[in-house]
Amino acid sequence: MRSTLLGVLATGAFALGAATAAQAQQSGAATQPIFDTGKNEYEAHCAVCHGARGEGNGPYAPYLTSAVPNLTTLTKRNGGVFPVVRVYETIDGRQRVPAHGPTDMPIWGPRYSAEIGEGLYDDIRVNREAYTRARVLLLTEYIYRLQAQ
């Protein structure tokens, strides 16, 4: 079950990234999306520690007890492959992965889930888990776009 879920997540994130890259190549800079949800999530929740460009130099980084990772080198440090599942699980944080070591980073899965409250959002019934996964995937895809070339 877990491996199937991870495969679906990896495929979904890859497809989303590929679609974004394809759209960017086809449309050019003049017609980029006005509202970039992944970027907005990053700027609202991650840039304070990781920096605007993901290099680990955010304004809050000097006050932390451990070094903030440079998110732009994840692919390079993983043999040229973006570690989709590891990034997703780190952001989500609800399922601890002992091999990834301890983390001082906030876990966003429970926070995103709590934002939905009782499952209602603007009078539309929302699946709490689907909402949480979508936000984590959007953020994961944006971090993919931050990778150094």
Results as ranks from 00 to 15, higher is better:
Glu55Pro: 04
Trp108Glu: 02
Arg86Lys: 15
Leu71Phe: 05
Ser3Lys: 11
Tyr121Gln: 14
Arg135Asn: 15
Pro83Gln: 03
Gly101Trp: 04
Gly28His: 01
Phe35Thr: 15
Gly101Cys: 03
Gly101Met: 01
Ala52Ser: 15
Gly17Gln: 02
Asn127Thr: 05
Val68Met: 08
Gln149Tyr: 04
Gly12Thr: 13
Val81Phe: 09
Gly93Lys: 05
Ala13Asp: 08
Ala99Leu: 10
Glu89Asn: 13
Pro110Lys: 11
Tyr60Phe: 12
Gln149Thr: 09
Pro62Gly: 10
Thr31Leu: 11
Ala114Asp: 13
Leu5Asn: 06
Pro59Lys: 12
His45Ile: 03
Thr75Pro: 03
Thr11Val: 06
Val68Ser: 11
Gly38Glu: 05
Thr132Arg: 15
Glu118Ile: 12
Asp104Lys: 04
Asp92Ile: 02
Thr72Gly: 11
Cys46Leu: 07
Leu16Pro: 01
Ala18Phe: 04
Val97Phe: 00
Ser3Ala: 09
Thr20Gly: 06
Lys39Val: 08
Arg135Met: 12
Thr37Ile: 14
His50Phe: 03
Val81Ser: 11
Leu64Gly: 00
Pro83Met: 05
Lys39Ile: 04
Thr31Lys: 10
Thr65Phe: 08
Ala30Ser: 12
Glu41Gly: 00
Cys49Ser: 11
Leu138Lys: 13
Thr103Phe: 07
Ile116Ala: 15
Thr65Trp: 05
Thr31Arg: 08
Gly38Val: 03
Pro83Tyr: 07
Glu89His: 02
Gly117Val: 04
Ala29Cys: 03
Ala18Gly: 00
Thr103Asn: 09
Gln26Trp: 01
Cys49Gly: 06
Asp92His: 10
Pro59Asn: 14
Ile91Phe: 05
Asn40Val: 02
Ala44Arg: 15
Ala15Thr: 08
Pro102Met: 12
Arg133Asn: 14
Ser27Met: 03
Gly80Ala: 01
Asp104Trp: 01
Gly56Ile: 06
Tyr112Thr: 05
Ala52Gln: 12
Thr65Ala: 13
Arg135Leu: 15
Gln26Thr: 04
Leu9Met: 05
Arg86Trp: 11
Thr132Gly: 09
Tyr88Ile: 06
Ile91Gln: 08
Ala52Arg: 08
Thr75Gly: 11
Tyr121Cys: 12
Gly119Ser: 04
Leu9Pro: 00
Ile34Val: 15
Tyr63Lys: 13
Arg2Gly: 11
Val8Leu: 14
Asp123Arg: 14
Glu118Leu: 09
Leu71Arg: 02
Arg133Ile: 13
Ala44Glu: 02
Asp122Thr: 00
Gly54Val: 07
Val48Lys: 03
Val68Gly: 01
Tyr88Leu: 08
Pro110Leu: 12
Gly54Phe: 04
Gln149Phe: 01
Arg94Asp: 03
Tyr60Asn: 13
Thr20Met: 01
Ala47Phe: 03
Asn57Cys: 05
Val126Thr: 10
Val136Met: 00
Asp92Phe: 00
Ala10Arg: 13
Gly56Cys: 09
Phe82Arg: 07
Tyr131Asn: 07
Leu64Asn: 00
Glu129Phe: 09
Arg96Met: 04
Glu55Cys: 05
Leu139Arg: 06
Arg128Ala: 14
Glu129Ile: 13
Thr4Gly: 03
Glu41Leu: 14
Pro62Asn: 10
Val8Asn: 11
